[in-house]
Design a protein around this nucleic acid. Structure first.
Length: 740
DNA sequence: GCTTAGGGTTCG
């Protein structure tokens, strides 16, 4: 049965949904009798297939009530469906957006994303042997000539057509085109322009295609709606067009769309999924189409007819070059009526200094500033004239491909903007000039495209490595993190004796089973994340004492500054220990007329004799700000104060050690602080552990603590996720779970 | 109502 796929769970199953009763999506609730029900709907969104381990996957789709007779309220007629395991993979390969699916053997859960996506308050979960999902592809229009009408009035779109009289399209080779005919063609795209506004009523797409006959044919497509235009992402994509009219122009034959025109495009890379790209509600696609696409892919690969790679990352950009950039939009700001600034990145570092642009925060859409490290990766793209209108509709976060972008060195003059001084005049700015020559334009790439998937991996790798700028996770990212157990990742996860982890040989259990079981056991659960706290990750950062297992918040700067200020006021006579050498610097008072303050710096005579003069100092009388400034020059700074005529450490609520930008804290309960001389003779690097030990301080660890609310079909459960926060990467890669 | 464009680098 072409166009029909039965997919089943791992069990024998095979029960036809016809034996079950169908329930409308709007009537689904957690009390639905799942065992005897089916749900039918059209796939309106298909998420990426997320691998969990070798044979385990997760896939999220959204289906919509497609039965016009249903009086479902529009609010609840779309529902999230989550598939697990092998079923997710098989289904992902078989299904396309627009297909109608029938599911059975599901469970109903509460949708954790209801507030965000405004879809049905429940979701359907398909996992295990009982889960089945049946896919039926939309039948092609019965008659090409009546196509425009049937396309708009698909009165019974859920009817699974087995009609043997389904017309078979015939495709003509590009070398055999005759003027004055209407044809269906396949081709490899060798040139294209994104749709642009014509002087008439429509958008116009202009492209050139070729096939095994080696003819290159120019095509023009006029459509009023952008979504009806071909979704071409790059040269080499494969295109199928129905009802194109042949026409002579400039001594060659060209193709132009005519009534009933339809188009589908495909990725042109050999080996990739043959996934039709279309927003058409009804289109024909069968095994013959798949074969044609694959033949064209291999042929194109053997022809070297495609130009050298146009799409390059920022790390490979050469000044003055034109190139295509695949990137994520972070922020944008209008400059004037003919120019808009797009701030983008692709996670790679351009070897040239990038043009810095300072934009007023109130005109910026998206964040107006980023961490220094991220800022260094951000390319400022000026788009001009006809592209401004398109840029206006872009949303920060979107994944884009910008075609025929130009890297321009030394152009640090941006209209109406202040920019950083650039004596060297070598800062790279990026310009998308006006016009559409050479396919100049911008396209939003869908999240599931392989290029976006690749881009996301690079971006994520950057975010994981970045310790200073912990990104805020949104629901779906958190969901993915949650769905990625540590054992599915590479072997980088380090073993720790205090860490317990489950493995995939442990059968998943339901949350209600977990709640009923004895404490202290290890469980493997498959659940959804209902909510999590805190919402900003930096708020999840805590200080943890491994000795007394207490946990506390990281003191904020205001509090720490207060402790420094309070400590510096005690300026009574002080006799430093015999093993230090002391110096003093006078600094101006804080305000006019106030007294000068003295900064006391003590060095260990032992360390001086070892030649380690910059490695550790004891600092007295400084403000927090001054301490931070000095931390740029000294590897270790231990703040000290005078107390009862002796040199002592500050209150342990303040950091006992500054190492560069990092601050270290000690546990008040477990430390026995005393100022002792530090011996570093056999030590290569004086680090926080050595200092803590010498000072009798019990070092506190930075940890990330999150509270998660989990749910499955049986129950909900609060769980705490806790991990050493030395790097965010290790947090993501090896999280342990304690169940309350 | 039945056109629009018909590739080929920039003002910034």
């Amino acid at each position: 049965m072409p166009g029909c796929v039965w997919l089943e769970g791992a069990g024998t199953g095979g029960q036809s949904p016809a034996h079950l009763s169908r329930i409308p999506i709007s009537l689904i609730s957690t009390s639905t009798d799942c065992a005897n029900s089916t749900v039918k709907g059209k796939v309106v969104h298909k998420g990426p297939l997320v691998p969990l381990s070798a044979n385990d996957f997760i896939l999220k789709i959204v289906i919509e009530e497609s039965d016009s007779s249903s009086n479902a309220s529009s609010q609840n007629s779309s529902i999230n469906v989550v598939l697990f395991g092998k079923l997710a993979k098989t289904f992902s390969q078989a299904v396309s957006q627009g297909d109608v699916v029938v599911a059975s053997g599901f469970t109903v859960g509460k949708s954790p994303t209801v507030h965000k996506d405004k879809l049905h308050p429940c979701n359907l979960l398909l996992s295990g042997d009982d889960a089945n999902i049946y896919v039926s592809r939309q039948p092609p229009p019965p008659d090409p000539r009546s196509s425009p009408a049937t396309k708009r009035s698909t009165t019974n779109p859920t009817e699974v057509s087995m009609n043997p009289k389904t017309p078979k399209y015939t495709y003509i080779r590009l070398g055999h085109l005759k003027p004055g005919s209407v044809v269906n063609v396949f081709g490899v795209v060798v040139f294209f322009k994104q749709p642009f506004k014509s002087r008439g009523t429509d958008f116009c797409s202009s492209l050139k295609i070729t096939d095994q006959s080696n003819q290159k044919i120019s095509c023009t497509i006029f459509c009023e709606k952008l979504e009806d235009h071909p979704k071409i992402f790059q040269i080499g994509d494969i295109i199928r067009m129905h009802r194109m009219k042949t026409q002579f122009f400039n001594d060659s034959i060209t193709l132009i769309n005519t009534h009933g025109f339809s188009v589908v495009t495909f990725d042109g890379s050999v080996g990739r999924d043959v996934e039709p790209r279309t927003s058409s509600r009804s289109f024909h696609f069968d095994q013959d189409d798949r074969r044609t696409v694959e033949e064209l892919r291999s042929w194109a690969a053997s022809q070297a007819l495609l130009p050298p790679v146009l799409t390059i990352p920022l790390s490979d950009v050469q000044p003055k070059a034109y190139f295509d950039l695949t990137c994520q939009l972070l922020a944008k700001a209008p400059i004037d009526t003919t120019c808009t600034l797009l701030r983008v990145w692709d996670g790679t570092k351009c070897p040239r200094t990038l043009l810095k642009v300072i934009v007023e925060p109130d005109v910026t859409e998206g964040p107006s500033s980023f961490s220094k490290k991220k800022e260094n990766l951000i390319a400022n793209v000026f788009v001009y004239d006809n592209h401004v209108e398109f840029a206006r509709q872009l949303k920060p976060g979107a994944f884009l491909r910008i075609y025929n972008l130009r890297a321009i060195p030394g152009s640090n003059k941006a209209p109406g903007l202040t920019s950083s001084p650039s004596e060297e005049g070598d800062h790279l700015g990026f310009h998308l000039h006006g016009g559409t020559a050479f396919g100049r334009g911008i396209r939003v790439l869908p999240e599931n495209s392989p290029d976006v998937q690749q881009l996301k991996r690079v971006i994520e790798a950057f975010s994981e490595d970045e310790e200073t700028d912990i990104p805020e996770l949104n629901d779906s990212e958190m969901y993915e993190v949650w769905c990625t157990p540590p054992e599915s990742l590479d072997g980088e996860t380090e073993k720790s004796s205090t860490e317990r982890r489950c493995s995939h040989d442990i059968q998943p259990v339901t949350l209600s089973e977990v709640k009923q079981s004895e404490p202290g056991q290890v469980h493997h659960v498959r659940v959804q994340l209902r909510s999590y706290e805190p919402h900003r990750l930096h708020q999840a950062l805590k200080l943890y004492c491994s000795k007394c297992t207490s946990m506390q918040d990281v003191p904020d700067d205001e509090l720490v500054a207060g402790l420094f200020s309070e400590a510096s006021k005690d300026s009574g006579p002080c006799s430093p220990p015999p093993w230090v050498l002391s110096g003093r610097v006078d600094v101006p008072g804080d305000s006019l007329g106030s007294l000068k303050r003295a900064l006391h710096i003590h060095l260990s005579s032992q360390l001086i004799s070892e030649g380690k003069t910059k490695e550790l100092i004891y600092l007295m009388g400084s403000t927090l700000e001054e301490t931070c400034q000095l931390a740029d020059n000294y590897q270790n700074i231990i703040p000290v104060r005078s107390s009862g005529g002796h040199l002592t450490l500050l209150d342990l609520a303040a950091p006992f050690l500054f190492r560069g930008a990092k601050r270290y804290y000690g546990c008040k309960r477990c430390s026995e602080p005393a100022l002792r001389e530090l011996c570093a003779e056999r030590v290569e690097v004086i680090d926080e552990k050595i200092v803590a030990e010498a000072l009798g301080v019990q070092l506190l660890q930075f940890v990330l603590l999150m509270k998660l609310e989990l749910q499955d079909a049986t129950d909900t459960l609060e769980a705490f996720l806790c991990r050493d926060a030395v790097s965010f990467r290790s947090y993501l890669k090896s999280s342990s779970l304690w169940i309350k």
